[in-house]
Simulated scan of single mutants.
Amino acid sequence: MSTPVPGPAGRWAIAHDGTRIGFDVVGDGEPLLLLAGQANSRSWWGPVRPDLAGFRTIAVDHAGTGAGDDVVDGEWSTRRFARDAVAVLDALGVGRAHLYGTSMGGRVAQWIAADHPGRVGALVLGCTSAGGAGTVPADRGVLRTLAGPPGPARCELVRLMVGPGWEGPLPVLGDDTMSTRARAGHRRASARHDAWDALPGVTAPVLVLHGDADEYTPVANGRLLAARIPAAQLVVLPGARHAYFLEQRERASAEVHRFLTEHPLAVC
Rank of each mutant, 00 (worst) to 15 (best):
V86W: 00
L89V: 08
L92K: 10
A13N: 05
R241L: 06
A153Q: 13
I229C: 12
R144H: 08
G211S: 07
P6C: 12
R80E: 04
E250M: 08
D197W: 01
D69Q: 10
G239C: 06
P4H: 07
R228P: 02
S179Q: 07
G95F: 01
Q233G: 08
Q248N: 07
A82D: 08
A232E: 03
H257C: 13
D139P: 01
R187L: 13
L224P: 00
L99F: 11
L234N: 06
R251T: 15
G105V: 12
V86P: 00
G131F: 01
A147G: 12
V48M: 15
Q38K: 11
P205C: 13
G64P: 08
W166F: 12
Q38E: 15
V72M: 01
P238I: 05
L157T: 05
Q38P: 00
A226K: 08
G168H: 11
L99W: 10
T203M: 12
G185N: 04
L234E: 08
P169M: 09
G201W: 06
G106L: 10
D175I: 09
R154K: 09
V158Q: 04
R107L: 12
G211H: 11
P218I: 10
G165V: 07
G68D: 09
A97G: 07
L199A: 09
A240L: 13
G222T: 06
V206N: 01
L35F: 05
G201H: 11
V25A: 03
R20G: 14
A204I: 10
D28Y: 00
F259N: 12
S190G: 07
D214T: 05
Q233R: 15
L35V: 09
D197Q: 14
L160S: 02
R159W: 14
A147K: 07
A39P: 02
E167S: 14
V124M: 10
H16V: 04
R183Q: 13
P6W: 08
I229N: 07
N221T: 05
V25N: 02
V86R: 01
A266M: 02
S43L: 14
R79T: 06
L143F: 00
P200I: 11
A13L: 02
L170C: 11
G27I: 05
L33G: 00
G141E: 03
R56S: 12
V5G: 03
L173W: 08
A87I: 00
H16I: 01
Q110P: 04
A85G: 00
D24G: 06
I14T: 15
Y244H: 15
G106F: 09
L123P: 02
V5H: 09
R241A: 06
A266Y: 03
G95S: 13
A13H: 03
R42M: 08
H263T: 07
G29C: 11
V219I: 10
L123D: 07
R96F: 03
A59H: 02
V5L: 14
V236M: 03
T135R: 15
A113Q: 06
V124A: 09
V256Y: 08
P137F: 09
A113V: 10
P169E: 15
P117N: 12
L52V: 09
V142I: 15
A182N: 04
R159I: 10
V108M: 04
F23S: 02
G106E: 06
S43V: 13
G148F: 03
M178F: 03
W12R: 04
L157Y: 13
R49Q: 15
V60M: 01
T57A: 03
A182H: 04
R187C: 05
W44M: 09
I58K: 04
R183M: 14
G68T: 07
V208P: 00
